[in-house]
Design a protein around this nucleic acid. Structure first.
Length: 421
DNA sequence: TCTGGGGTCCTATGCCGA
DNA sequence: TCTGTCGGCATAGGACCC
């Protein structure tokens, strides 16, 4: 049996833990750069605020309706996520952390009443963190996701839906009432295609011919059909595999024009990406850099370019990667454009232990370099990201992203600790 | 003025050599 | 020597997730 536990409106709920005055009010959390809405309280949803709605289009409406916005505070969400996951791990030895706000727990030969167990999970997480969660329990991951969806949307369930405790008629009724697009793994495009094939509801999909689904769609969708029938076809992944690529990209707070400024941004992103790379103990075999203008302003001259270059020898050295990235930037940079976004991608990742040496290459002393990178990581961890950095990352970041309504780092910075009277 | 960021997996396609 | 076929591989792009 598999449970899917998911925090309600996660980012908004995190903000509310430390700002109780936000309770009961329409609240939204904005993406990086305060670009668009990425989390909404139920009150905001009720006002018709759509997911991913551009914030600048909503400004007036928000003011009118008293909608409160917060810039996203990822340090806070990551810390709160860690607390929730730690608590949930007490309920089962088998946990798959699926995203920042949800995880699967598996229970072998579960004897306890499913609903009782799930309510216990809800109470514990709420009491220990202040965050509300919903729980779906079912024999497969896809059904657990569906049960969670039902628990979240239908008030009588009180935040918990144990699929096996519904009788077959109730299960059918639920599946007939829900559109196929509500199934985990069925997105907009596949829903559209299925509509043409006469598959509209989840019940339709469950009753479809799995072999034909394989033909018309893919093996992935076929697995989903099996899962809907209660046949486990998607494994629980308890260990997170190493990343195969690491990407760091940002839109700029304001447009920039010069290679110098783009270089600062690229250097900053490389530093961050390389830090992640070292954290997982990998080396990058190749590296890509991209820059682009603002596609939302089609009347402006548009330019978008990227180049992927192999590295002579795989590396996790910030200095070496920075030099390579700036070399690439020089190749793709064109004057006369207003650049809105840039990014770097580290690809062809391999374990540090399996380096292929290079017969003729002369590099800086690798042991000294590794020590240098470690010291930089240590300093930045203790004193804050960017405390020590390569000079090409610059100092006056005019391109830094907008975060006009950023809350304090309540749980991860001493100066921001809340005071309780 | 103002439209996010970070991932994965799968399939189609074209090239190459056996 | 030429031609057809097939599998392996790299790559690009589409689809999905949060």
């Amino acid at each position: 049996m598999i449970a899917l536990v998911d925090v309600n409106n996660f980012y908004v709920s995190c903000q509310r833990v430390f700002e109780p005055k936000l309770m009961g009010k329409p609240v939204v959390v904005l993406s990086n750069n305060d670009g668009c809405v990425v989390a909404r309280s139920s009150e905001a949803k009720a006002l018709g605020i759509k997911m991913a709605a551009p914030w600048h289009q909503l400004r007036d409406f928000a003011q009118q309706e008293g909608i409160i916005a917060r810039s996203s505070n990822y340090a806070l969400y990551a810390d709160m996520s860690h607390r929730v996951m730690t608590i949930l791990s007490r309920f089962s030895p088998n946990q798959e952390i699926y995203s920042i706000d949800e995880c699967f727990l598996s229970f072998d030969g579960l004897l306890q009443d499913h609903t009782e167990l799930a309510q216990d999970i809800r109470r514990t997480v709420l009491q220990w963190t202040g965050l509300p969660v919903c729980v779906g329990i079912a024999p497969t991951k896809t059904l657990a996701k569906l049960a969670n969806h039902i628990a979240k949307k239908q008030a009588p369930f009180n935040g918990v839906c144990a699929w096996q405790q519904l009788n077959p008629n109730q299960q059918d009724a639920q599946m007939q009432a829900l559109p196929v697009g509500d199934v985990w793994g069925i997105g907009r495009r596949i829903s559209e295609r299925m509509a043409q094939e006469g598959i509209h509801t989840i019940a339709d999909l469950r009753a479809s011919n799995a072999d034909q689904i394989r033909q018309r769609h893919s093996i992935v969708v076929q697995r989903t059909v099996h899962e809907l029938r209660g046949i486990p076809s998607i494994e629980l992944e308890e260990s997170t595999p190493d990343k195969q690529q690491i990407l760091c990209s940002r839109s700029f707070g304001q447009e920039i024009y010069t290679e110098q400024e783009l270089g600062e941004a690229i250097s900053t992103y490389i530093a961050r990406a390389a830090e992640k790379l070292r954290q997982q103990g990998s080396l990058a075999g190749s590296l890509a850099v991209f820059i682009r203008t603002n596609p939302f302003r089609p009347k402006d001259p548009q330019y978008s370019q990227h180049i992927l270059v192999p590295l002579t020898q795989a590396s996790d050295d910030t200095l070496l990667l920075t030099r390579a990235a700036l070399w690439v930037l020089k190749r793709i940079y064109r004057t006369g454009f207003a650049y809105a976004k840039a990014g770097v991608m580290l690809c062809d990742l391999q374990p540090r232990t399996a380096v292929q040496g290079h017969l003729f290459l002369q590099t800086a002393d690798p042991i000294k370099r590794a020590a240098l990178n470690k010291v930089m990581d240590d300093i930045n961890r203790q004193w804050g990201r960017g405390s020590i950095r390569v000079a090409s990352a610059g100092f006056n970041h005019g391109w830094k992203m907008r975060q006009n309504t950023l809350s304090p780092y309540w749980t991860t910075r001493w100066a921001d600790l809340p005071i309780v009277r």
